[in-house]
Design a protein around this nucleic acid. Sequence first.
DNA 1: CCCGTATGGTCAACCTCGTTGACCATAGCC
DNA 2: GGCTATGGTCAACGAGGTTGACCATACGGG
Lengths: 143, 143
Amino acid sequence: MTDLARLLLEARRALATELDADLEERGFPDLRPGHAALFLSIDRRSGSRLTDLAEHVRLTKQAMMALVDDLESLGYVRRVPDPNDARAKLVRLTARGRRAAAECRRAVQSVEQRTKRQLGDRRFDTLREALEELAEPSSAEGA
Amino acid sequence: MTDLARLLLEARRALATELDADLEERGFPDLRPGHAALFLSIDRRSGSRLTDLAEHVRLTKQAMMALVDDLESLGYVRRVPDPNDARAKLVRLTARGRRAAAECRRAVQSVEQRTKRQLGDRRFDTLREALEELAEPSSAEGA
DNA sequence: CCCGTATGGTCAACCTCGTTGACCATAGCC
DNA sequence: GGCTATGGTCAACGAGGTTGACCATACGGG
């Protein structure tokens, strides 16, 4: 079991490393896998709220904040006030951000395709399914 | 893909949390899942070298050191000089350590059994297999 | 016998990815 | 008009690792 846990960690790291390398090849060495998830979730036109992004990616808003801070300081994203809610801000892609988002999609696609090829569609699906079941909080019930 | 990575993380966390809770119920609230791996790897009679433990668990020796430091300060383990090699030390279970190790084995077994039941043996095996393939460094080749 | 290299353990610094807790400002209901 | 809920933010921390540098001992070859 401890090795299962370790395998989960290592598999994740392998995937992350691969995506990272892919992103770098595409000219975005400053983007890390975590950012990609944000790029895939953000609304391309109007932008998205921090809270919505966090929820979509299943992160705390604080964690999402850190990602947005990164991307903002790198010039991929800008925070603009939400016209409909003075508390909120919209995280909006800059022109550069739109390019990056597009490459992220491709990079993610590419890794996913390769993984599917490596594993075969059936095992890939089984893997995802099994992980979803394990990841559910309900797993650890029943003392 | 980014969600696959996330699932790997979450699945791992779920497993770790479950093991942690199990360990606590067994009276070892100060043990964390990382320690369990050590307990499962250590030679119960003569003890094991740090390097061997690290290798067995696929950790750097520095990371293993931290675990051993923990367990030593908690009184589960002692470092004794290796009679066959003045450079080396043997990490040896104390009496308390032996009890803890036994409970760790049971806790790990228990989580593993439950997981197998949850997933079914076939999917469990597929999962492990798939993870092993993904975790291999060879996965990310070919730019 | 002595030297160079390999190996075992250790220290220090750092990173990623995430968490919880506390707060403030604005929303929005009654 | 006040009360609670919500959006964003700051600060601190934790787990679980990594790399790099080092020192002492081991061990093989001249």
